[in-house]
Amino acid sequence: MKSQVAFSYGGQCLDSNIDGFTTLSVAGRGDFTRAVTATDLASDGAKYLSSRLESKKLTIKFFLKSVSLTDLTAKLGKLKWILSAKNTTVSFADDPLYKYVGTVTSVTLDDTTLHPTGSIEVTLSDLYCYSIAQQKTGTGKTVAFIDYDSEFPNVPLSVEFTPSSAISVFQMTSNQSKRFLLNQSVSAGKKVVVDFETLSCTVNGANVLSSVSLNSNFADFTIDKNTVLTFNADGRYLVRFEVKKL
């Protein structure tokens, strides 16, 4: 039977894909550590200079049932093959709307019986977790993100905008001083697609990256629950994004 905290790695649920595998527990999801840089004072203590959140580790405990040594060897082989993927999605059945990105850094067995327990250690270089892709659609000049369920800002996946009438340039700004400017005319009904994952921009499917202003916040056009985007014309929009949590 599938565990309530069943572990999935690279899109493969181990409880479902390996007969006899059961996820017992997962530790570390709520943890974080902060490295602080400080300099000692001549008086007591030290002066704070800077700090950063560090990568974190998840530890997954599991049980693996087998009927023979050959069966155990085959299941361990499949387990190691699935876990050999690098920097891939990590998720758990009790929190299906959110995922991490990490790499398995160790697999250990607690004993050598036909029914061993063991541990899988996953290192999360990016310590944040991200929701499944969400989207906002509508018409007009503005779009608000008041239902963005986190304080942490994140770059959207993409923005699509189709103007109702022809425009000489396409501009998108936020109330948090972010700006994207395409120095190219766009005819009515032609879709502008700004892809923040691949840092690309198209109009009606044609690449127009060379017309994107160098002053645009292409790599750091972040949104959060307080963000309001404004377009320089009326039209249809579709914004795809992931909510970012610690």
Rank of each mutant, 00 (worst) to 15 (best):
A85N: 07
Y48T: 00
K2N: 12
L14S: 04
F218S: 04
T112F: 10
A93S: 13
P153N: 01
Q171T: 12
P116K: 03
I18S: 12
Q176A: 03
C13Y: 03
T139N: 12
F21L: 10
Q4V: 10
K245P: 01
L14A: 09
C129R: 15
E54M: 05
K57V: 09
H115R: 12
M1P: 15
T108W: 03
T59C: 10
K141H: 05
S43G: 13
K245R: 15
F152Q: 06
I60Q: 10
S200K: 11
L124G: 08
L64H: 13
S213E: 03
D71Q: 12
K225A: 06
R236S: 11
L49N: 12
V212A: 13
A74E: 14
D19V: 15
I167Y: 06
A133T: 13
D31C: 06
L109N: 09
N204L: 08
D110S: 12
K178H: 14
N217I: 02
T37I: 02
R236A: 12
M1N: 13
A85W: 00
L229H: 01
T202S: 08
S16T: 10
L199Q: 07
K65C: 11
K75V: 05
I82Q: 08
L79W: 06
T198C: 00
T103K: 15
R34T: 13
T59I: 10
T230I: 02
L79I: 03
T103P: 15
T123D: 06
I82N: 06
I18C: 13
K2Y: 02
S177Q: 14
D111W: 11
Y98M: 09
L127P: 13
K57G: 04
Y98D: 05
T142H: 07
Y9L: 07
L76V: 02
K225D: 09
F145L: 08
D71Y: 04
F170G: 05
A85K: 12
N207H: 09
S25V: 09
V212Q: 13
V5R: 12
V239P: 10
S164A: 14
D31M: 09
V208S: 06
V243N: 07
D147E: 14
T222A: 08
P163K: 07
D234R: 01
D126S: 08
S185K: 13
S210W: 04
T39L: 00
L24I: 08
N217K: 04
V101W: 10
T33Y: 02
T39H: 00
